[in-house]
Amino acid sequence: MQEPRTRLDLARIRAARSFIDPMFLNTPLYRCEALEPDLGCAVSIKLETANPVRSFKARGTELVASQLAANGTRAAVCASAGNLGQALAWSARARSLDVTVIASRHATRTKLDRIRALGAKLELVDGDHELARERAAAIARQDGIRLVEDSLDIETCEGAATIALELLDPAEASAPPFDMILIALGGGALATGVGHVLKSLNPTVEVICVQPLGAPALTHSFHQRRVVTTATTNTIADGVAGRIPIPPVLNDLLEVADDAVLVHESSIITGMRLLLAHAGLVVEPSAALGIAAILENRERFAGRHVVTVVCGSNVDVDAYWRWVGAAGVRGS
């Protein structure tokens, strides 16, 4: 089968596994039958949260940090809503690299605390993630250090792509055949990485990306086939709340995604409740986007076997319980 025309390379993706700490690989994949009465379709979960940074991001930062160490580069800076910063801090600490993370002052407190605990320098800006990206780029220029840009740096995409190798592994006895996958869409690393592998090795699988209505820039860009920006974002799914898509990432996405959809905040919250009540999973809002997409269009998914990637579980406990609520869990 021919690879899609993207920046990604299947041989590099296969080789990437040897640079990623095994604790981030071969994550659980299982059919969650308890969810199916509420959703009306077969649902399998790819669980990317049972690791030290509680998200899939370390698959990519392990590649980044390995290359930095091999090249003798000792310092790097990145902008992050929280998960990339944690992952880069973890990967850098293991290789004695210095990392600075730029984040919004309004980012999830739990994520910021973990970045500090992992030894990275943390600088906060009085704005959103796009302002943090600008500040990170300025520091990289000023200090002459490596700027790590999520989704633009191919390592972040190809690290995420290793998830799809595991989805298609015939040795994975708990992985029955599936015909659709729902992927949270933020900067695009997860969607382009997983999508590239699936379209290379099993192109009949339908790749559907999901964003909140309050942060729709990359979804609008996908449908209009050009970069569309937004002035603001308004969503609890902070991990996917970008305003300015990256042109090469959009080009990659157009080659591997079949569709991109937008979902309401209420559906995201219901998805979080269902994952807690029926799968025992505490997830951040971005990780519930796949479930939200099914809730909003049950007819589309009826009779299908859908995989959803549970991509992160770094939540502020107080905010989580405000959203989910004990009464809501009992009523799910």
Rank of each mutant, 00 (worst) to 15 (best):
T6E: 03
D9A: 15
A15F: 04
R17Y: 02
R17G: 08
D21R: 15
T27L: 08
L29G: 04
C32E: 13
D38K: 15
L39T: 01
G40R: 03
V43Q: 11
I45H: 09
K46E: 03
L47Y: 10
R59C: 10
E62M: 03
E62V: 11
L63R: 11
V64M: 04
R74Y: 03
A81S: 14
G85S: 08
G85D: 04
S91W: 04
R95N: 12
R95S: 10
L97N: 02
V101K: 05
S104K: 04
R105A: 15
R105H: 15
A107F: 00
D113G: 09
A117T: 12
G119V: 06
V125S: 01
V125N: 09
A132L: 11
R146Q: 09
L147C: 09
D153C: 11
E155A: 13
E166Y: 10
F178L: 11
F178R: 03
D179C: 12
I183S: 12
L185D: 02
A189G: 05
A189M: 00
G193Y: 00
V194L: 04
G195W: 05
G195L: 02
V197M: 08
N202A: 13
E206K: 15
E206Q: 14
I208R: 13
P212K: 01
L213P: 06
G214C: 06
L218S: 14
T219N: 04
V228W: 01
T233P: 01
T235S: 07
G242Y: 04
P248D: 01
L250W: 04
N251V: 01
L253C: 00
L254S: 08
V256K: 04
V261I: 12
S267G: 06
G271E: 02
L274M: 05
L276P: 09
A279S: 14
V283S: 12
E284F: 08
A292N: 01
A293P: 09
R300H: 09
R300M: 11
V306E: 03
V310Y: 06
G312T: 00
D318S: 15
Y320H: 10
W323K: 10
V329E: 08
S332F: 02
S332L: 05
